[in-house]
Amino acid sequence: MAEQLITLEEFWGLREKHPLLDARSESEFAQSHIPSSHNIPILNDAERKIVGTLYKEKGAEAATMKGFELVGPRFHEIQKEAAQLFPEKKIILYCWRGGMRSQILSWLLGMVGFQVFRLKGGYKTYRTYTFEEVRKDRRLIVLGGKTGTAKTLLLQKLAEKGEQVLDLEGLANHRGSAFGAIGQPPQPTVEQFENQMAEELRYLDPQQALWIENESRKIGRIILPDGLFAQMLQSPLIDLRKPMEERIAHIADDYAALPKEELIAAVLRLKKKLGGLRTQEAIADIQSGNHPAWISNLLVYYDKAYEFDLERHEAGKIRTVDLGGLTIEEQLELLVKIKNQTNAKSPYPAHRVE
Score class of each variant (00 low, 15 high):
residue 108 L to F: 05
residue 112 V to N: 01
residue 87 P to N: 10
residue 128 T to M: 10
residue 83 A to W: 09
residue 149 T to N: 06
residue 74 R to A: 10
residue 57 E to K: 15
residue 76 H to M: 10
residue 91 I to D: 09
residue 87 P to H: 10
residue 52 G to T: 13
residue 65 M to V: 15
residue 139 R to V: 07
residue 112 V to S: 00
residue 67 G to V: 13
residue 46 A to Y: 04
residue 150 A to E: 05
residue 161 K to V: 03
residue 137 D to T: 14
residue 159 A to W: 01
residue 67 G to K: 14
residue 131 F to P: 03
residue 100 M to P: 09
residue 155 L to N: 01
residue 93 L to D: 08
residue 91 I to P: 08
residue 47 E to G: 09
residue 140 L to V: 12
residue 108 L to Y: 03
residue 144 G to E: 04
residue 50 I to P: 00
residue 51 V to A: 12
residue 124 K to M: 07
residue 133 E to W: 06
residue 59 G to I: 11
residue 58 K to R: 15
residue 152 T to S: 08
residue 139 R to E: 09
residue 52 G to Y: 11
residue 129 Y to P: 08
residue 121 G to L: 04
residue 38 H to Y: 09
residue 107 W to A: 05
residue 144 G to R: 11
residue 104 I to F: 15
residue 69 E to F: 08
residue 35 P to M: 02
residue 88 E to M: 06
residue 120 K to A: 04
residue 73 P to L: 13
residue 89 K to Q: 15
residue 102 S to D: 14
residue 131 F to N: 12
residue 62 A to W: 14
residue 95 C to R: 11
residue 149 T to E: 00
residue 90 K to P: 02
residue 44 N to S: 03
residue 105 L to W: 02
residue 155 L to P: 01
residue 127 R to I: 09
residue 65 M to D: 11
residue 97 R to P: 11
residue 102 S to V: 06
residue 131 F to D: 11
residue 37 S to Y: 03
residue 132 E to P: 00
residue 91 I to H: 09
residue 78 I to Q: 07
residue 145 G to Q: 09
residue 118 R to H: 00
residue 138 R to I: 10
residue 109 L to F: 03
residue 42 I to F: 02
residue 153 L to E: 08
residue 160 E to D: 05
residue 128 T to S: 13
residue 73 P to V: 14
residue 93 L to F: 12
residue 145 G to Y: 14
residue 66 K to I: 06
residue 107 W to I: 06
residue 82 A to H: 07
residue 107 W to S: 09
residue 115 Q to F: 04
residue 78 I to K: 11
residue 64 T to M: 13
residue 101 R to A: 10
residue 80 K to V: 10
residue 66 K to G: 08
residue 55 Y to C: 07
residue 118 R to T: 04
residue 120 K to F: 01
residue 71 V to H: 05
residue 101 R to Q: 12
residue 35 P to Y: 03
residue 38 H to P: 00
residue 137 D to S: 14
residue 105 L to C: 06
residue 52 G to Q: 14
residue 131 F to E: 11
residue 80 K to D: 12
residue 42 I to V: 03
